[in-house]
């Protein structure tokens, strides 16, 4: 399935958002959104991905 992860097109095996994070080695303290909507940690396992989904995985960063 083709998705866009953090702006980059990716071919992935994962069928859920939780599996995608494992497949792409994104662990630790991150927050996720799919197609511009927030998906809380507790719902990642049940969130099925679809072809063309835009996934954002954000982490803590410097800010003012």
């Amino acid at each position: 399935m083709k998705i866009v992860l953090n702006g980059e097109p990716r071919e992935v095996e994962a069928e859920t958002l939780a599996a995608l994070l494992v497949e792409c080695g994104l662990s630790g303290r991150v927050a996720t959104a799919v197609n511009e909507s927030f998906v809380p940690t507790s719902l990642r396992g049940g969130h099925r991905l679809n072809d063309g989904d835009r996934v954002e995985v954000l982490a803590p960063m410097q800010g003012g």
Binding site: G28, V30, L58, A59, G63
Partner: peptide
């Protein structure tokens, strides 16, 4: 103050 940005490995 902090922010959120795309995870690049440095966030943790």
């Amino acid at each position: 103050t902090v922010s959120l940005r795309r995870e690049s490995g440095a966030g943790q």
